[in-house]
Amino acid sequence: MQIPKDGEQTKRETSNVTTIVEFVLLGFSDIPNLHWILFGIFLLMYLTILMCNSIIILITKTDPALQTPMYFFLSNFSFLEICYVTIIIPRMLMDIWTQKGNISLFACATQMCFFLMLGGTECLLLTVMAYDRYVAICKPLQYPLVMNHKVCIQLIVASLITTIPVVIGETCQIFLLPFCGSNTINHFFCDIPPVLKLACGNIFVNEITVHVVAVVFITVPFLLIVVSYGKIISNILKLSSARGRAKAFSTCSSHLIVVVLFFGAGTITYLQPKPHQFQRMGKLISLFYTILIPTLNPMIYTLRNKDIMEALRKLLAKLLT
């Protein structure tokens, strides 16, 4: 990774004060011998994410057996996953390929804003999916009325709209801070903890804001999901049929695995007491929730779901005939 010198317009000097106008993402410059291996691995994972999620979107839109609220939410979640990783991985691949990590403040702020917006929307959508399972299992007679198509669309739109003003405000608050020290971000994308670490002056208010937003979009949704699944499990255990219990558990287990992985990584990243603690395991944890989990999610949903596997077999049969 080539780190530009001050003369390469990464900083601007005004009245003896050096103000940063460009950041440098260090990425994986500490392991230069593995650059091309990492490039190949990340490119393969990105293509896997695009292909698998696109297949899920296709079969949930075309197979009549999958025209239900659960699969409607799943297809929207898959679309969000594609957007979510596209904010991060192509830029990271370009930095690895060019051995440079220069990124303007505006581009950095834009990346952070969209990443947080999509991540927050996924948190809310996972909560909506848990509520969908709760109504389907605990109130089956009311399910067609409660989760009609109009309500499903409204829940999707609400999940997105809720995050927009909060994330824009959070991003503006961070990038209105002066950055007058080092311009190197020891990370592979513009996430809050490593960027906030470079800010000058008192960042106590920003730290509090980050924690409040994290509680709203991570802790509260996670607690709602836990409550939903507590009621779901209680209701499933009351079923007299062992087959019925197994089927009910199978429809929920995939979603529950995704929730634990996604919210667990988010909690570790954004609810730490101090930003400087991020560097210890920051990159590894970020790779986990920005690349690895999105790669595993389609496999978790498809391999553990008989309806999707059947729809996939039908699709493959049509393509091969």
Rank of each mutant, 00 (worst) to 15 (best):
F179T: 00
P178R: 08
C138S: 13
T163I: 03
F217R: 09
M92C: 14
V85R: 03
N148E: 11
E13H: 08
F217I: 09
L126D: 00
F188S: 05
V146R: 12
T184P: 00
I218P: 02
V213I: 14
T251P: 00
T171P: 09
W97D: 04
K238S: 14
S29C: 13
V167F: 11
Q111Y: 08
P90G: 10
V24I: 03
S78A: 15
V128R: 10
I57H: 02
T219C: 12
I291Y: 04
G119W: 12
A317C: 12
E310N: 13
R304N: 14
S75G: 13
S159G: 08
F73I: 05
T302G: 01
T302A: 09
L237C: 08
Q154A: 15
I203L: 06
L261A: 12
L256H: 03
R12D: 12
I3D: 03
K61L: 14
L320Q: 12
L25G: 09
N76T: 01
M129C: 07
H276K: 09
F23T: 05
E8I: 03
I88M: 05
P273W: 07
S286I: 01
C138G: 08
L177A: 13
L74A: 09
P221G: 13
V205N: 04
L38W: 08
T219R: 02
Q272Y: 01
V226T: 10
H187F: 15
I56P: 01
L320M: 07
P193N: 11
L315M: 15
F278W: 15
I156Q: 12
K283G: 12
I89S: 01
Q277I: 06
D307L: 11
T290E: 12
H149C: 06
K139H: 14
V220D: 05
K150Q: 08
R313N: 11
I285C: 06
I164D: 06
V213P: 00
A246T: 09
G282Y: 07
C200I: 00
R133C: 08
G101P: 05
Y270C: 05
S241V: 10
I89A: 10
K283M: 13
I103T: 11
I293P: 07
L196S: 14
G27W: 01
R91C: 05
D132I: 01
Q279S: 10
F278V: 02
N305F: 07
A242E: 12
V260W: 04
V17A: 03
L44C: 11
L284M: 10
Y134H: 15
N102L: 10
V195P: 04
V227R: 08
T184F: 00
R12Y: 14
G169Q: 12
N76S: 03
L47N: 05
M92R: 02
W36P: 00
Y229I: 05
S159L: 08
N33A: 13
G40R: 07
P144T: 07
L287K: 04
M147T: 07
H149P: 00
Y46S: 06
Y134L: 15
